[in-house]
Design a protein around this nucleic acid. Structure first.
Length: 653
DNA sequence: CTTAGGG
DNA sequence: CCCTAAG
């Protein structure tokens, strides 16, 4: 096996430019003075093709050669059709070198500033994911404009909004995206969301993000089933992370990407077969549990699509938005966004009241490169060069496409406070460009703020379920088997109040696609946490932290959940966590029965310690009392049960 | 797969 | 929340 340690650096150049001239406000059709958006990435129009330079596998070096962008308007690759809304011009170039111990990925966002040459980026993604070959030429055709305004107001909002312009050539029908919900990330907080390389490139160029790409290493690209329609491609690809738990863990344990030589095409079906038993059992409820592993990536997916796919719908805070919430970042006064097509035709203006903003209050940023966390790849020596290409591509794409967030460095120091304005942070319009840096970092705690509100709001039942009466403090009725089969109706209903994980809510992808498609390669991107030391990282630098990256996000139990749990345990006892799950948390896909068991464990512990020692959201004492009572009761019950059994066995003997 | 318990 | 042994 050959191991490639791939430290990728995505270099690109973005210009987050300060508004240049007052005239620009009139230039756009919306006539919104504040909505004038300038600028973009540097234009180079290059795309890079990763191409191994070696003939044999003995030479481990992989070089990247650049593909000159083909600015050909006539050709439409699937990329374009996939994200047709991007009518602007951004290209990217990337370079990957793999040299056993180091790799370098240079991705460059280039601006198709060149208006008339629509800057169409036609790139031959030779190393695309299987099937992409069919498209032959992939064209990334988009213009991304970013404006950052250093708010003078201390509202903690830093409106940075990508402006993607374009026309619809292919509508994405993914209800996950278009269900009217606001883009999660944009609305979540004020952190600087810069749709850089990671946001645009991977998805649009080769939608091989972990979430929706079937990572395959097949040697017969040409024979692959073909993706004539981009939308289909996306849908037909299933998340890598949907592999069974066990398998994932094994992979994670190895802390690197691993491509088994046996995992070729014909393995796919087998893999599927392996998975079926896992997913098929008991009302399929376990399947849903599994799918939660995708949460972080799905979140991202939503954001990516929403920010790219349909700007008009999403980036509007005039109240016309389809979103139930007005204004994406919840701060209507802060955001100034304007959409306009490349042609300057369609545009929608937002936030007129901010139009008074001084010209000088815009900050111009320039991002020369992005650094990407380390990757580790292991491949059999017998693997083909083609599969190597694809593997690297997939690795890079996956890491770019999943779980990354942007870190901001000011004078080399990390800017951690997302709530400060640029100005407060020290980034003002006349700030030296070089002082500001960006880095792609693994998302350490992807605790999506959008979740928490739901926890509290959705979980509170209109009519509070009646306290349980069926657990008689000292009755012998409560046999382990009696209430087992027919849960109390009100208890069963309780599940409805528990947050239903919207991330794993049945989506077209989940239901229709997963059955037919399969997991293929056991590839998992393991973002390296260390982003500080980027340039060249020795192979042995991989650390345990990579595992942490794959940990499920921590989701503290809300009081309502605790209530539900207590109630269920009061009813069912402490030894039947699966039933507890089904009874009270059936709709909370992210809570496994193990989680519930663990939670109960901590609840008991919490109830026993003094209130001063407790942490987190305080659990009402009443609930904790019930926990202790129930725990005592069921412990006694268990003891009795055991005694009984013991007596019986003794009698038999 | 579930349960139980340690980490 | 993870992991693992045991059933």
């Amino acid at each position: 096996m050959r191991a490639f340690d791939l430290l990728a650096t995505v270099a690109g150049e973005m210009l987050l430019e300060r508004e240049s001239s007052p005239a620009c406000s009139n230039a756009s059709k919306g006539n919104d003075p504040c909505a004038c958006v300038q600028n973009v990435w540097e234009n180079e129009g290059k795309l890079v093709k990763i191409e191994p330079s070696y003939q044999g596998i003995s030479d481990r070096r992989v070089l990247a050669s650049e593909l000159v962008q083909q600015a050909d308007d006539q050709k439409y690759g699937f990329v374009e059709s996939l994200f047709p809304q991007n009518d602007g011009h951004s290209g990217f170039a990337s370079m990957v070198t793999i040299d056993c111990s180091e790799s370098f990925v240079d991705q460059r966002l280039v601006n198709g500033k060149n208006k008339n040459d629509t800057g169409n980026l036609a790139s031959k993604l030779d190393l695309g994911v299987s099937g992409y070959r069919e498209s032959g030429v992939c064209k990334l055709d988009c213009e991304t404009k970013i404006m950052i305004k250093d708010e003078l107001h201390n509202n903690g909002k830093v409106p940075i909004v990508p402006v993607v312009t374009g026309t619809d050539k292919c509508s994405l029908e993914d209800p996950e995206v278009w269900d009217g919900k606001p883009p999660a990330l944009v609305s979540s907080d004020s952190s600087v969301k810069v749709p850089l390389c990671g946001d645009h490139i991977p998805r649009s160029s080769f939608p091989a993000s972990r979430d929706d790409v079937k990572i395959v290493s097949r040697d017969d690209d040409e024979n692959s089933s073909g993706c004539t329609h981009p939308c289909t491609i996306t849908k037909s690809i299933r998340p890598v992370s949907r592999i069974g738990d066990r398998r994932i863990r094994k992979i994670l344990a190895s802390k690197h990407w691993k491509v088994s030589p046996k995992l070729k095409d014909n393995t796919l079906l087998n893999t599927d077969g392996d998975l079926k038993p896992i997913f098929r059992n008991r009302k399929g409820y376990y399947k849903r549990q599994r799918s939660q592993m995708n949460v972080p990536f799905k979140k991202r997916k939503i954001f990516e699509r929403s920010s790219v796919s349909n700007p008009n719908r999403l980036f509007t805070c005039e109240g016309k938005s389809d979103s139930p919430e007005k204004g994406i970042n919840g701060d209507a006064s802060g955001s100034c966004v304007k959409m306009h097509g490349a042609t300057g035709t369609s545009s929608s203006v937002v936030c007129q009241h901010t139009s008074i903003q001084s010209r000088d209050s815009y900050v111009k940023l320039r991002i020369k490169s992005f650094r990407v966390p380390e990757l580790f790849i292991e491949m059999p020596e017998t693997a083909t060069v083609g599969s190597l290409k694809r593997t690297v591509m997939e690795a890079v794409t996956a890491i770019l496409g999943g779980g990354l967030h942007v870190g901001v460095l000011l004078r080399g120091k990390k800017v951690r406070d997302d709530n400060k304005t640029l100005l407060q942070t020290g980034i003002s319009h006349d700030y030296p460009l070089d002082a500001l840096g960006f880095a792609l970092e693994p998302n350490p705690s992807q605790n999506p703020p959008s979740i928490c509100p739901r926890d509290s709001s959705c979980m509170l039942p209109c009519d509070t379920p009646q306290p349980l009466t069926s657990y008689p403090p000292d009755s012998t009725v409560a046999h382990q088997g009696t209430c087992h089969t027919s849960p109390e109706p009100h208890l069963a209903n309780l599940g409805n109040f528990i947050e239903s994980d919207h991330d794993s809510a049945p989506s077209p992808t989940d239901t229709s696609v997963d059955k037919s498609t399969t997991d293929s390669k056991a590839l998992v991107a393991v973002p390296e946490m260390n982003v500080e030391a980027l340039a060249v990282v020795p192979i042995h630098r991989k650390s345990k932290r990579s595992e942490i990256a794959q940990r499920r996000i921590r989701r503290p139990f809300s009081v309502a959940e605790v209530e539900a749990l207590v109630q269920a345990v009061e009813k069912l006892g402490t030894g039947r966590w699966r039933d507890v799950k089904l009874l009270a948390f059936d709709n909370a896909k992210h809570r496994t029965y193990v989680d519930l068991k663990d939670k109960w464990k901590t609840l008991v512990h919490t109830a026993r310690i003094s209130p001063q020692q407790r942490r987190g959201e305080p659990v009402p004492q009443e609930l904790l009392d019930r926990v202790l009572t129930a725990h005592a009761f069921w412990s006694k019950q268990q003891a009795r049960q055991q005694l009984k059994q013991h007596a019986e066995t003794c009698l038999l003997i």
